[in-house]
């Protein structure tokens, strides 16, 4: 505490301090790091390759003797390694695609809402158009003309996920820009870009961070739908969404196929949730 008085802290540092005090958020952060590490290093603990077929064990339950810790899938491939490889993809897709849609959504929504009038009208009608366009054809065309690549997944997901984010930010902005502090900043001669980045956006972050944490699961599961259309990850690579989707079909007869990826996904999502809430509290400008 005494430190605080001596050296003035930047807002980011302050936010970090506040976050560090939030037990739930810190636990979540540590768990997330552990899961990421597990996905990166875990495969080294198994003798199996993610694409190797074990002709002795087709669809067999978890078994330590054969070193199939999570069992095998219908093709006799080790699910422990596949789950961790899938986790790499899902975590990357989930976090990156969400961050992209987060940034685009915030900027777009804040600009549209703050400038208002005709600009707002045009920008929001553009959002309406994107909402209504047939997403599946967009994906199909992407694969046909550009082949398959992990970057296309981000483009495809990014193209839809930022829309609601933008509308939320715009809604908040419409309300915020009439507030006294924005008026005050204007009177003081702050530029539009400064008002948007320094006054509007920080004040919209609360609901937006929370919505972003809600976007992550959507994105992760969405990726499995892309695989269905032929854009997602290509076999023999996999992802949590794909594994859960396949496992769900036989959960009564082969529980292990869904259980492990589903549990890992659920833990990840819970952690993100608490981390998101912690971040929201830490960044709330009104608490400063």
């Amino acid at each position: 505490m005494t430190n605080d008085e001596q050296i003035p802290l930047t807002p980011t540092q302050k936010a970090w301090r506040r976050l560090a005090k939030n037990k739930a958020a810190m636990t979540a952060l540590i768990l997330l790091k552990l899961i990421t590490l597990f996905c990166l290093l875990g495969p080294f603990l198994s003798p199996w390759e993610y694409d190797a077929v074990d002709f002795e064990h087709f669809a067999s339950p978890p078994d330590w003797q054969s070193k199939h810790y999570f069992g095998t899938d219908d093709n006799g491939r080790d699910l422990y390694v596949r789950t961790l490889y899938g986790g790499r993809i899902s975590l990357m897709v989930g976090l990156l695609a969400t961050s992209v849609s987060f940034i685009i959504g915030i900027l777009y929504g804040a600009i549209s809402g703050y400038i208002g009038g005709k600009t707002d009208m045009l920008m929001m009608r553009f959002v309406d158009v994107l909402y209504a366009l047939p997403f599946m054809f967009f994906v199909i065309l992407l694969t046909v003309y550009f082949g398959r690549s992990i970057w296309l997944i981000f483009i495809a997901i990014g193209a839809v996920e930022w829309l609601t984010m933008a509308r939320i930010v715009r809604g908040q902005t419409l309300s915020l820009k009439q507030r006294a502090f924005v008026e005050a900043a204007k009177v003081c001669g702050a530029s539009t870009s400064r008002i948007i980045t320094r006054h509007i956006i920080p004040n919209t972050l609360g609901p937006v961070i929370v919505y972003a944490t809600l976007t992550v699961p959507q994105v992760i599961l969405f990726e499995s739908f892309l695989s269905f259309l032929g854009l997602g990850v290509q076999e023999p690579m996999t992802s949590w969404g794909v594994l859960i989707n396949e496992g769900a079909k036989q959960m009564e007869s082969a529980y292990w196929m869904m259980l492990f990826p589903a549990v890992l996904l659920a833990i990840t999502l819970f952690c993100l949730n608490f981390l998101g809430d912690g971040l929201r509290d830490a960044l709330d400008p009104k608490d400063r």
Binding site: L214, P217, G241, M251, A262, L265, A266, N273, F274
Partner: peptide, 28 residues
């Protein structure tokens, strides 16, 4: 009840709905 036990319980409960995808919960 921000950051209380009830808060965490309720949010965990709510989160379950989003952590378990549709195509899993519906067949269950």
């Amino acid at each position: 009840k921000q950051n209380s036990f009830i808060d965490h319980l309720v949010m965990t409960l709510a989160m379950t709905g989003i952590a378990i995808p549709n195509f899993v919960i519906a067949p269950i």
